[in-house]
Amino acid sequence: MFYSKSKPIRLMILSGMLVPSLLFVAGTFFAGIFISGVQSLDYFPLIGKTTLSFRVYIELFHSAIFYRSLFFSLGISLAATFISALIAVILALWLRRYVRHGRWLHFLLQFNLPVPHVVGAIAILLLFGQSGLISRLTYWAGMIQQPSQFPVLVTDQNGIGIVLEYVWKEVPFIAVSVLSILKSWVVPYEKQLQLLGANAWQRWKLVTFPFMLPSLLSSSIIVFAYTFGSFEVPYVLGSISKPTLPILAYQAYLNPNLTYRSEAMAINIVITIISMFLVIFYMKWGEGYAEKRR
C-alpha cells in the first residue's frame, strides 16, 4: 500500500507520514515564537494595542536593568561552562587510566545525569544555604559562631549557588562525551607520537587536546545554551534583587499590569535569538568541526 518503486514517491509518502508529528512539534514551537514575536512588537488586542511597533525593544535596549540581567546571565553561563569544562577534562584524563574499573566509574560519573536540575538546585540550597547542612556542620565544629557567619553562597548577588548547581550537573555531561574519545581512538595516536619522541606535555598539546576539542566544544556549547536559557535553577538559587534574563522575563510576565507582557515577550525573543546563534555555533564549531576531523 505504501510501497512505490519510484524514490521521489517513496520520499513523498514518508514525508506525508511524518506530517502529523511534525505539525505538533514544529507547529507549537513556531506558534509560540510567533505569538511572542507579535506581542513583543506591542501587539496586544486584549488591552487595545493593535499596531506593531519597536517601542518595547527600544525601551529594553535603553534599560539598565535589562543589561544588568543580560550580562549577569551571560557571566553565570560563561563561568559555569568554563569551570564545568575544566573539571570535566581533568576528571576524564584521570578516569581514563582506570579502564579496568570502567563500569563502576562510569556509573559513579553518570549517576546524576537523570536527576532534574530543580532537584539539584534544592540540594544545593539545603547544603550550601546559611542554615544548610554544611553551615550547621561548621557551626558544630566550632568554625563559625552563628549561621550568619557562613558565607552567602545561595540566593547571593554573584550567582555562586547557581554556578555550583550547573557545575555539579554539567561536569559529568561534558566528562562522559570527552572520556569516550580519550578512552578509545586517541590512544594509538598518542603512542605513535610518543614513538616519534613526544613527551607527555607534547602528546597532550599535539594529539590529546586537538582530538578531544570537538566533543569538548560541542558539549560546552550545549551547556552554555542550556544554562543561559534555564529558568528553574536561578528561580530557586538566585537573588530576587538581581535576576537573570529568564527570571526578568518571568517577573514581567507575572506583573498584574498587562502592559509589561510585551516586555516579557521581547526578553524571550532576545533569549531565543541568542540561543539560535549558539545553535549556529554548535553546527559550525561543534558538529561541523568534529566531522572535519574525522
Binding site: Q192, L195, V207, P210, R293
Partner: peptide
C-alpha cells in the same frame, strides 16, 4: 619509548587528520 630513538609503523597510519 620517546627516549629509545626508534620508530614504529602500525597497521593504521595514525597520521594527524
Amino acid at each position: 619509548p620517546e627516549k629509545r630513538n626508534l620508530s614504529m609503523i602500525f597497521q593504521k597510519t595514525y597520521l594527524l587528520p
